[in-house]
Deep mutational scan, measured.
Amino acid sequence: EADPRLIESLSQMLSMGFSDEGGWLTRLLQTKNYDIGAALDTIQY
Rank of each mutant, 00 (worst) to 15 (best):
G37I: 14
D35V: 05
S9V: 12
G22V: 01
I7Q: 15
D20F: 02
A2D: 14
M13T: 00
S15K: 14
M13E: 00
E1A: 09
T42M: 10
R5F: 07
T31C: 12
S19H: 13
Q44L: 14
M13D: 00
S15M: 12
S15Y: 09
Y34D: 00
L25K: 00
I43N: 03
G23P: 00
Y45S: 15
G23S: 06
G17H: 02
S19C: 10
S9G: 07
P4F: 12
R27T: 14
S15H: 10
R27I: 13
L25R: 00
N33M: 10
L10D: 00
G22L: 07
E1G: 13
I43P: 02
G17K: 04
W24N: 03
K32G: 06
Q30V: 15
S11M: 10
E1Y: 13
A38Q: 11
G17Y: 01
T26P: 01
S11V: 12
S15C: 09
L6Y: 09
T42C: 11
E21H: 08
R27V: 13
L40W: 06
L28V: 06
R27M: 10
E8W: 12
T26S: 11
L25Q: 00
Y34I: 01
P4Q: 14
Q30S: 10
Q12K: 14
L40T: 04
I7L: 13
Q12T: 13
G37L: 14
T42W: 15
Q12G: 05
K32I: 11
N33W: 06
Q44Y: 15
L28D: 02
I7K: 12
Q44T: 10
G23L: 07
D41K: 15
K32E: 12
M16S: 04
E8I: 13
D35F: 04
G22S: 08
G37Y: 14
A38N: 05
A2G: 10
A39P: 02
T26A: 07
D20T: 02
A38M: 11
S19R: 11
S19P: 04
Q30A: 08
L25I: 07
I7M: 10
L29N: 01
L29F: 02
E8Q: 09
D35L: 05
T26Y: 05
G23D: 05
A39F: 04
I36D: 00
K32R: 09
L6D: 01
L14A: 09
L28W: 03
R5M: 09
Y34L: 04
Q12D: 04
D3G: 05
M13Y: 02
I7F: 10
E21D: 13
A2N: 14
Q44K: 14
I43S: 02
G37C: 09
D35M: 03
G37F: 14
T26Q: 06
K32F: 11
